[in-house]
């Protein structure tokens, strides 16, 4: 068989809209769990946002968390069970607005967890409001005239910010707008989980994603937007990599 559903991905229909990137990323995370054979000892944490019902899609044990609190919940699970694999799966409103403190502090503590960060520049679940990552000029339900940085401030660049923290072992921004980028994204996710198995510290993979529904676009237009508007503002690449330096504490 050339292609089959990863074992770590449940055989259910998702609630994701047509053209949404969540499905791709779910598959990549599941493939990584399969290939590393860690599903049985993994606990995933999905907080509020479009990721909220992912506890039905991943077949590992799952915890649903309050808005923004997934890294704190992950800290609790991981500290209590250092031998388990713990990941969070968070959107931009969750990770970069209401949960900024949890993001920054779990990173700076060097929590040995893996964070999957979906950046689609909008609040999806609530119907398309301005996110901390909404681009200047972008029209959303709460920026009907386009985001004006003089009024609503500038977007947050998470990989750039988190990579300045000593506890961050690995920060990479990827996109899922093309087969080549999807392959690169999987490699990054794989590395994020491997880092945890190797005890490197905090790993975050930011994935530039589509939200055709709330962007008011067709799926193919949405892919073009990732390419033409998002990648120029949020450059892809590795922002931090401590894996060849023995991890954040230099002992691995």
């Amino acid at each position: 068989m050339i292609l089959e559903r990863p074992k770590s991905l449940a055989d259910v229909s998702t609630h994701f809209c047509p053209g949404c990137s969540h499905g791709i990323v779910h598959r990549l995370v599941s493939e990584v769990m399969d290939e590393l054979q860690i599903e049985g000892r993994t606990v995933g944490i999905c907080p509020v946002g479009c990721a909220v019902t992912s506890y039905n899609y991943f077949t590992c044990d799952m915890i649903e968390a309050a808005h923004g609190r997934a890294p704190a919940v992950a800290t609790g699970v991981k500290r209590a069970n250092p031998d388990k694999v713990v990941f969070t799966y968070q959107g931009d409103g969750d990770l970069a607005a209401i949960g900024t403190a949890e993001t920054v502090h779990s990173a700076t503590r060097g929590e040995n967890i893996t964070v999957i960060f979906i950046n689609n520049t909008i609040y999806g679940m609530t119907g398309g409001q301005m996110a901390p990552t909404t681009l200047p000029g972008q029209v959303t339900q709460t920026t009907p005239y386009g985001r004006d940085p003089r009024y609503a401030g500038f977007p947050v660049r998470i990989c750039e910010m988190v990579s300045t923290l000593s506890g961050c072992a690995y920060a990479e921004r990827v996109a899922v707008d093309s087969p080549a980028h999807v392959k690169a994204a999987k490699k990054a996710i794989m590395k994020g989980f491997r880092n945890q198995l190797d005890g490197m510290g905090f790993s975050i993979i930011e994935i530039l994603s589509t939200c055709p529904t709330n962007w008011g676009m067709t799926p193919s237009q949405a892919i073009e937007r990732v390419r033409n508007e998002m990648i120029p503002y949020y450059p892809l690449g590795v922002y931090k990599d401590m894996t060849d330096k023995g991890g954040v504490f230099g002992d691995k």
Binding site: I45, I63, A65, A66, R69, A72, V73, A74, T75, G76, V77, K78, R79, A80, A101, E102, H105
Partner: peptide, 10 residues
């Protein structure tokens, strides 16, 4: 807030 959510996780 983080403290109670860490309790939640544990």
């Amino acid at each position: 807030i983080a403290a109670i959510n860490m309790v939640y996780g544990a």
